[in-house]
């Protein structure tokens, strides 16, 4: 399948918008300097200025008017119950979390099961910067410049056997390091799952960074998933275990409220959450609501995987 990085939006168009929230820093530097600065990598610029990094990367599936959500929001407004249930808790409570060293276990129905040090796990692949749309099940959304590798890369290296049909992911369980796990709001550890074809899809990203920097702890350091056509809770954070299995794995939110959250959890404006409409969303930083797009705008690339399925039943 061909994934086109939306040709209608060039990253050169994105940069000035991305730099917009740095307005204060930029007021001094006038027009010419602005153009020149676009050539310097955003993260370097931010470091030099001690400010927020500037988005960089190839846009995937961005719609007209989509611009990267400011770093402050991407790293300050998080659902990561392992570090508290408030949106601003993770940024605070994850400050002391040390994600190094980190081991990832890959096993189950694979020919090459192994425990990897994170660096060895990532090294064989080339890190890519990709700008994706992100839609939370709570009807808010962001545009996020991730850095990572296709999940397919690591799955192929593990060589799934012919019985492997699904992939199951597990987050670290360590209540001493993840204070939110002291509260039984979910059945820890957090687990998630994908069908094998979803997991192998070229859009499915294993992220190690955001905004050109290593993932901040509150964003799921040091390794998280991002599946842009699914609600955010599918994109499990701080992954320690990837297992290939033959049965549909269970996922934490479905276990906790099966009538509200399903296994597939594809973004779908026509299927409401029992407590709110999914037809529209609030883009963080914007006032007017936006219409929610089928598969979060990635229908061309992913809809064929679900042809013939009743998406009302398989929510």
């Amino acid at each position: 399948m061909l994934i086109r990085p939306a040709a209608d939006i060039r990253s050169s168009e994105l940069t000035p918008e991305a730099a917009y929230w740095n307005r204060r820093d930029w007021l001094a530097a006038a027009g010419g300097a602005f153009a020149a600065s676009a050539l310097v990598p955003g993260s370097l610029r931010a470091l030099a200025q001690g400010g927020s990094p500037v988005a960089q990367g190839t846009p995937y599936g961005l719609q007209p008017g989509d611009k990267p959500t400011p770093w402050e929001d991407v790293t300050g407004y998080n659902n990561f119950y392992e570090f508290g249930t408030g949106k601003e808790d993770p940024a605070e409570l994850a400050k002391g979390f040390n994600p190094k060293p980190w081991t990832v276990k890959v096993d189950g129905l694979v020919k090459k099961a192994a425990d990897y040090q994170l660096e060895d796990f990532i090294k064989p692949s080339k890190l890519e910067d990709r700008i994706y749309r992100h839609r939370c099940v709570e009807a808010w959304s962001m545009v996020i410049p991730w850095r990572g590798i296709p999940l397919a890369d690591v799955l192929k290296r593990a060589e799934p056997t012919s019985q492997a049909k699904f992939v199951e992911f597990t987050t670290l369980f360590d209540p001493r390091r993840m204070p939110g796990q002291a509260l039984r709001v979910l059945d820890w550890p957090y687990v998630e799952g994908l069908r094998l074809d979803e997991a192998m899809h070229p859009l499915t990203l294993l992220a190690t960074g955001v905004y050109g920097r290593d993932l901040p702890n509150q964003n799921g350091a040091p390794l998280r998933l991002h599946v842009p056509w699914k609600y955010g809770f599918k994109s499990i954070k701080s992954i320690v275990h990837i297992r290939l299995v033959d049965k549909q794995p269970r996922n934490s939110w479905q276990l906790s409220s099966p009538n509200e959250y399903g296994f597939y959890s594809n973004v779908n404006p026509e299927v409401d959450h029992p407590r709110w409409s999914q037809a529209s969303e609030r883009r963080i930083g914007e006032f007017a609501r936006r219409k929610t797009l089928m598969f979060n705008g990635y229908a061309d690339q992913v809809a064929s995987m679900y042809s013939g399925m009743d998406l009302r039943k398989n929510y």
């Binding site: 402050e72 300050g76 407004y77 949106k87 808010w140 609030r282 963080i284 930083g285 006032f287």
Partner: peptide, 12 residues
């Protein structure tokens, strides 16, 4: 564009 009520001021 301030953040007195955080990133999602309407909800908050």
């Amino acid at each position: 564009g301030t953040r007195y009520f955080g990133s999602n001021p309407i909800k908050e």
